[in-house]
Simulated assay, not measured.
Amino acid sequence: MEIKIKLNGTMVSDDVPADTLLIDFVRAHGCLSVKRGCETSSCGLCTVLMDDEPVLSCSTLAARANGRSVHTLEGLQEEASEFVGFIADQGAEQCGFCNPGFVMNTIALLRENPDPSDGEILAYLSGNLCRCSGYEGQLRGIRAFLNSRHEEGANHE
């Protein structure tokens, strides 16, 4: 089956079997930030943005993305660079395996809610499993990023 997906801003077409998963499609096209973890939609490692909404690519058929826009971390480096250093400063990326999923969901969260509460951050990121550091470091990093944005805004007033 022929599918066309706008992958990180570039139109990509490919002939794939009908049962091809989106994770396999994006990885075959060089997007290696998308990780295979649980393969049961439980860990968040495979999160991509499809039409700006986070989806788990391990449980989404590539055919469902036909004609749609899909972004992986490779296509969102500039947006991610705004806050990933804050997460790293909190020691929240010990092995780094879960980071792409956390970053993708943080981008989606901040696009939807630019000033979330701690509870909203934790709720949004609850689908991402981290076996090394838990979630407090990620929460502290996102909170530090948001606080820095508030300070910058206050300094420009």
Rank of each mutant, 00 (worst) to 15 (best):
M1F: 15
M1G: 14
E2A: 15
I3P: 08
L7N: 00
M11S: 13
V12N: 03
S13A: 08
D14V: 09
D14H: 11
V16R: 06
P17K: 15
T20K: 08
T20M: 07
T20P: 12
L22W: 09
L22T: 10
G30W: 03
G30E: 07
C31F: 00
S33M: 05
K35N: 07
G37H: 12
C38H: 12
T40I: 15
S41W: 09
S41D: 12
C43K: 02
C46L: 04
T47R: 09
V48P: 12
D52M: 10
P54N: 06
C58E: 00
S59H: 05
T60S: 11
L61W: 14
A63D: 03
A63H: 08
A63G: 12
A65K: 02
R68I: 09
S69G: 07
H71P: 04
E74K: 00
E74L: 00
Q77T: 04
E78A: 09
E79G: 05
E79V: 09
E82H: 09
F83P: 00
I87V: 15
A88V: 06
Q90H: 08
Q94C: 11
C95L: 15
C98H: 04
P100A: 05
G101W: 12
G101K: 06
F102G: 05
M104L: 04
L109Q: 02
L109S: 06
R111K: 13
R111N: 02
E112D: 15
N113W: 12
N113R: 14
S117K: 01
S117W: 08
G119Y: 03
E120G: 05
A123H: 03
A123C: 07
Y124Q: 14
L125D: 02
S126Q: 11
G127Y: 02
N128T: 09
N128W: 02
L129G: 01
L129S: 10
C130H: 10
C132Q: 02
S133M: 03
G134I: 03
E136N: 09
E136Q: 14
G137V: 06
G137N: 10
R140C: 07
I142M: 02
I142Q: 01
R143G: 02
F145Q: 04
R149A: 00
E151G: 11
E152Q: 14
